[in-house]
């Protein structure tokens, strides 16, 4: 149903349906022939077009210099394209006030970007306070948000540097959720935390998304992270050139070219798994190079 609505919106951007969809907050993001050229003449992004479906997780994945962060930052006008348009529900963001636009869009950064001089609770309630929500109400909401992202309320009065990296990232997510935005932008949010915490945070994002259904754009250079959380994966070459767009299943089963195969590790057989009978009747799963990848469990 949602898909039909989006399709209508996409085909008939000025139609009655589009206006209706806008009212219910479909929050579809569309890049139309977007180019970002640096003053030195090189391209960060060249003629990029893509529809980011609403209420789904879209992950931009690629190496450094692929333009993924630039694309993300065009959505909330932290970067303005040299040419082309970025539309949210058919509306050109270039025509919106950047400050108002940014307050309506959640943003999570790798460096957390928490304000070091503010307590956790005040960091989380930053945007509602800017929007004029009374302090008491904003703080109460912030405590609820700490629950939502799985943080203990006792952390509320601490300063950011008194928290672990993983906890700080959860605060970053809570802050992004504080104004109840429909769109969430995540710029390599888990790049600086250790692998175990990273897995926890990915699981947390999946759980939050099942509850909250945001239109989420997530940037990472880690393909496993992309597969773990994405509804739609966008693999980028340099200059924002799209190598392949699809669900994780589609990309794993049908990589379109060698670039994608190499990128996802299919060329080295990392993605082709075999069963091997281990000791004690356990079935071990190994990749093409014989490295164990896991054990075979019972299907539910």
């Amino acid at each position: 149903m949602a898909f039909l609505l989006e399709l209508t919106l996409y085909l008939l951007p000025t139609s009655r349906f589009a206006r209706l969809a806008r009212k219910v907050g479909a929050d579809m993001i569309e890049f139309q022939n977007v180019t970002k050229r640096f003053p030195d003449g090189s391209f960060a992004v060249k003629d990029f077009s893509l529809v980011v479906p609403s209420r789904k997780v879209t992950v931009f994945v690629g190496s450094s210099g692929a333009g993924k962060t630039t694309l993300l930052r065009m959505i909330n006008r932290m970067v303005n394209p040299t040419s082309g348009k970025v539309l949210i529900d058919g509306e050109d963001v270039a025509e919106l006030d950047p400050v108002a636009l940014r307050r309506k869009i959640g943003y999570v950064l790798q460096a957390t970007g928490l304000l070091p001089h503010r307590r956790i609770i005040d960091n989380v309630s930053s945007v509602p306070r800017l929007n004029g929500v009374p302090k008491k109400k904003a703080r109460e909401d912030a405590l609820t948000l700490l629950d939502t992202v799985g943080l203990d309320r006792s952390l509320a009065d601490r300063y950011p540097d008194q928290l672990s990296g993983g906890q700080q990232q959860r605060v970053g997510v809570a802050r992004a959720l504080a104004s109840d935005p429909n769109i969430m932008l995540m710029d390599e949010p888990f790049g600086a935390v250790d692998p175990i915490v990273r897995l926890e945070l990915q699981e947390e994002i999946n759980r939050l998304q099942r509850e909250l259904h945001k239109t989420m754009v997530f940037v990472t250079h880690n393909i496993d992270e992309a597969f773990a959380i994405a509804d739609q994966v966008v693999i980028l070459k340099s200059g924002g050139e799209i190598a392949q767009v699809g669900t994780p299943e589609e990309i794993l089963s049908k990589p379109v070219d060698d670039f994608v195969s190499t990128f996802i590790g299919a060329d080295k057989g990392k993605r082709t798994l075999h069963l091997k009978q281990g000791e004690d009747g356990v079935t071990v799963i190994v990749d093409d190079e014989g490295r164990p990848a896991g054990i075979l469990g019972d299907a539910e």
Binding site: M78, V99, R103, L109, G113, P116, V127, R175
Partner: peptide, 23 residues
């Protein structure tokens, strides 16, 4: 002043005036 804090406050919607006084 850490650029992370300034950039982040810009990204979540602090105007220049708010950014000066609060960040």
């Amino acid at each position: 002043v850490p650029t992370d804090a300034i950039e982040a406050s810009r990204a979540i919607g602090y105007s220049s005036w708010n950014r000066f006084w609060h960040v």
